[in-house]
Every structure is written in structure tokens, then in C-alpha cells.
Amino acid sequence: MKTPARKTVACPTCRKPVLWSPASRWRPFCSERCRLIDLGEWLSEEKRIPGDPAYAPEN
């Protein structure tokens, strides 16, 4: 009998392999540190989803 393949994904921050399972607390990240780095990049707008602004900036 074959054992099921263990699915791994690359951490979005450092590219380290991460087991995709409920036991992986920070998935898809390998650690809380990588999760916080990614969050900081979104908050500082280093990462963003392209498109028109959701609101018109005030001058």
C-alpha cells in the first residue's frame, strides 16, 4: 500500500519548503518571522495588487 504524498509549498518569504498541513502553524510561511516580514511588505505598500485606487485621494 502506498503512503500518501506529503504536500510541501515554498515559503513566500524565504522559499524554504513548508509542509502543508494543520500542524504547520504559520503555513504558507515557515515561521512567524517570515509571516511578519510579508505583512510589513504589504503594509508599507512594497507589495500591492495592481488596479485603480478604491478611493480618490484628497488633495
Rank of each mutant, 00 (worst) to 15 (best):
P22M: 05
W20Y: 06
N59D: 14
S21C: 06
P57K: 05
E58D: 11
E32Q: 13
E41C: 10
P22Y: 00
R27I: 09
I49N: 03
A10H: 10
R27P: 00
R15H: 12
C30A: 00
R27Q: 11
R33Q: 11
V18A: 02
F29G: 01
V18F: 05
E32Y: 06
M1E: 13
S24H: 03
A56H: 11
P12G: 04
L43R: 03
I37Q: 05
S24Y: 01
L43V: 10
T8Q: 11
V9C: 05
R15I: 05
I37H: 02
P53Q: 02
E58S: 15
T13P: 03
G40T: 10
M1N: 15
P28C: 07
M1I: 06
E46M: 12
M1C: 10
R6L: 15
E45S: 13
A56I: 15
D38N: 10
Y55I: 15
E46S: 10
E32N: 10
R48Y: 14
I37P: 04
P53W: 07
C30L: 09
V18N: 00
W20N: 10
L19R: 01
D52I: 13
E32P: 00
K7S: 06
E58V: 14
L36M: 08
A5F: 14
W26G: 02
P28Q: 04
A10C: 11
F29P: 00
P17A: 00
P17Y: 04
K7Q: 12
F29R: 04
R35G: 03
I49S: 07
S44H: 06
E32T: 05
R27S: 13
L19N: 00
G40F: 08
P22L: 07
Y55A: 15
